[in-house]
Amino acid sequence: MDLTLHVWRQKGPKDKGRLTTYKATDISSDMSFLEMLDVVNEGLIKQGIEPIAFDHDCREGICGTCSQVINGDPHGPQARTTVCQLHMRQFKDGDEIYIEPWRSRAFPVIRDLVVDRSAMDRLMQAGGFVSVKTGGVPDANTILIPKDDAETAMDAAECIGCGACVAACPNGSAMLFVASKVGQLAKLPQGRAEAARRVCTMTDAMLEEGFGNCSNHYDCEAACPKGISVKFIAQLNREYFMALPKGHKEKN
């Protein structure tokens, strides 16, 4: 099939970007979206044009590196699918495809479709962990976790940290990302000890990093390649509410 691509090109963080139009010809429907871009890039290199920069790594939908808004939809039209797992059979001959980077104040563009998502690392550093040190922990089976709780925690833990929730959110909020970690650890006895502190420090960090706040639009859930449920946002809010009577310490 032949396609027309409108791709965001931006030389560097401080440069002005714009959409540039390219033709993608002879595309097989068995290709992944990124393989289609590989083909386009090979063509560009041969013409002496700098290829389109885009983030990608594992190409099996788990590392969370790939990040493109395709026709206004983070990770493209197929539900619960990352760009690297999106295949061209989802498109048809003659389609026009708009490809833009994640848009968020917290995710400055580095080049073309590549953005800086280190803000999400900093959210995790604000409290997305159990502060256990290596060694000196009890036998794994001394901590009993009901199957349902373990499953719910796993539902939340599936987050790949790609940032599609932020890209999709009308408010540029990272609430689903934060909620998935808060939700996972709050469900487990190992994470309860720090639950109140975690929900406060992580949500405060979200504000500091320039993410918007959640106003319950749920575009995040629809865009999430792992289908993380917004019920974890409700859980985050609940955790925050329960943390109110407790002392709040500043991030150390």
Binding site: V132, T134, P138, A140, L144, K147, Q184, L188
Partner: peptide, 22 residues
Amino acid sequence: NAIIDQCVAQGVPFARDYAGYL
């Protein structure tokens, strides 16, 4: 064995049975 203990302590949600064991 120590690895499994450590990971569980970190909050890794390993599969569990209905009694709550790994």
